[in-house]
Design a protein around this nucleic acid. Structure first.
Lengths: 153, 153
DNA sequence: GTGTCATTTTTGATTCATTCAAAAATAGGT
DNA sequence: ACCTATTTTTGAATGAATCAAAAATGACAC
């Protein structure tokens, strides 16, 4: 269940997750390795280069199967479409650029998973805590500074 | 900009936010007061009772205008559609029930906004930190325990 | 290796939330 | 009461994701 050997060959990982090894799945896994935060569209764009007759539906299938099998995780920052990552089983969070949408990982800064104080008195039994930071990435910052060179506003 | 008088009459709030006062907007605001975490559909269902000829589009308009004016905030937990709340200007987070989708507020437990340590070294300039807790609400817990009475898993 | 069957992929249509756009209605200052 | 910019209505369009049935394929037993 846990991604114990993240660098193992794609087919071993897929088989280890209890899934059949297919060309589509291998290609999707490689695509996720090449782009650690990818949407179904991103993945499809990449795999359709090598696999000729692939469909977006197959990519959705593979990504969904990976997520179900615990091989991948699906995140969905507000205003973004579903995004997948292979880094699972640890506790980490995300920074999302409000300019370009770039997503980076953020290691948990406080403690172990879930890294936050669980709200008490709500009556909820908390399973996970998800933290999303919103900000501006270096590239977008450089770009916006190029537009208004003075330390204006 | 800040929701300085959350209990003021609806029309005063709307006008104070720089928006024209219309029956639609008043009704939408009241609906948000009655249901502090409502989707556009929720709001439409409620206002269409009193306002006969309203359209969902008008609700989207009003909610969008409220959000732009800082009167309301739009959140979007993964797998949920856009949800609006009137509580703005403070720093609070959310618990989402994985069973029924119910959303409750959670006061910031660590400190002031943004209530978390900002990740360093990422190069991002962080603007906000958003925390979402996922868990099971009391109602859903009671229901699932009714199904399997024994302390079974 | 071959056959078999469950799983996977393909193809195509469908749903849902949301946005776009143009015409009709309305708020609020003059 | 009038005028004009804003808002609402109406209807269509988009994009992400899901559903469903038929065709293809992986992996096991023989």
């Amino acid at each position: 269940m846990l991604d114990s050997q993240p660098d193992a060959p794609a087919d071993a990982l897929i088989r280890g997750a209890g899934l059949r090894v297919t060309t589509t799945r291998v290609a999707v896994l490689e695509a996720l390795r090449a782009r650690p935060h990818a949407t179904a569209d991103d993945v499809f764009a990449r795999v359709s280069g090598t696999l000729a007759g692939t469909s977006k539906q197959s990519v959705y299938n593979a990504l969904g199967d990976f997520a179900d099998a615990g091989l991948a995780r699906r995140i969905e920052p507000a205003g973004h479409s579903g995004t997948f990552e292979l880094r699972v089983g640890d506790n980490h969070h995300h920074v999302v650029c409000t300019g370009c949408g770039r997503i980076d990982d953020v290691d948990c800064v406080v403690g172990a998973a879930p890294c936050l104080h669980v709200p008490e008195g709500s009556g909820f039994v908390i399973e996970t805590a998800e933290v999303t930071f919103w900000g501006v990435c270096p590239d977008c910052r450089a770009e916006s500074e190029a537009e208004k060179p003075r330390g204006s506003r």
